[in-house]
Amino acid sequence: MLAEMPVISRDPMQPAGCRVTHVKKETHDTWTLDVTPPDKHWRFQPGQFSMLYVFGVGELPISISGDPQHPSKQTYTVRAVGMATRRLVSLKPKDWLGVRGPFGNGWPVEQARGKDVVLVAGGIGLAPLRPVIYHILAHRADYGRLILLYGARSPRDIIYTAELKAWAKLPQTEILTTVDYGGLSWRGNVGVVTSLFRRIALNPLRTVGMICGPEIMMSYAAREFEQKGVSRHDIYLSMERNMKCGIGLCGHCQHGPNFVCKDGPVFTYSSLERWIYKREI
């Protein structure tokens, strides 16, 4: 009765103040920002995202694209597609940035131990998968082959070009890139990312597939994996829905029975199959 009045505990909606330390232009419309971590305990799992608060503009869910072994900085790769993302990529070193996170479940890097990992990325979808590559390279003996199938719109839309070249030289690592529209000077593959599946041989029983990109591309890629005999329980997709809070409280990011922000963003194809082909879910 006369107990003390309850106090309002720390709000998970309150951003922590961070600083931009480095901004790198990846392509004509995509930038990678390095940001100081909110504190020295900051860690993340490959595939997790943060809510980035641009002062006065609002919050954006952005996947973490950095190296999980080096959480001394937060790294985000952002494609400027709207007003808020344009403001985000126009930040300069020393600028203030509000950060909440990391949120979400992340890629199944533990379950994939001992297996071949095939990553399928479409466009900016490579950014959330880059931490998986860093993780595998840092624990190389724990994994079999690492294959990346990466589709971009055109050669000038390819991100992380220097790293792609470096990774391709590593043992047990195959990097296959393709573009939808290639000029005559482009010597690489032309065709959608799913067309790269016929370039690779998989052992379906020891393969884990991780797919990130536009929803339609992911469903086609998932079916390519299935056609190669990979179990739908070993195929993972990173879903995108409208995320406003990142913690399952605002209701916006529902996809069927799931909250993409807290139950995902990574889901097995087996759990999504019922919903991903339904319209307007």
Binding site: G123, D180, P214, I216
Partner: peptide, 19 residues
């Protein structure tokens, strides 16, 4: 069938023009 599906997906311009 494979090439047609590919061509149709290419037509969507998924990465650039979803908008």
């Amino acid at each position: 069938e494979q090439r047609l599906e590919s061509a149709r997906l290419q037509l969507l311009d998924l990465y650039g023009g979803a908008k």
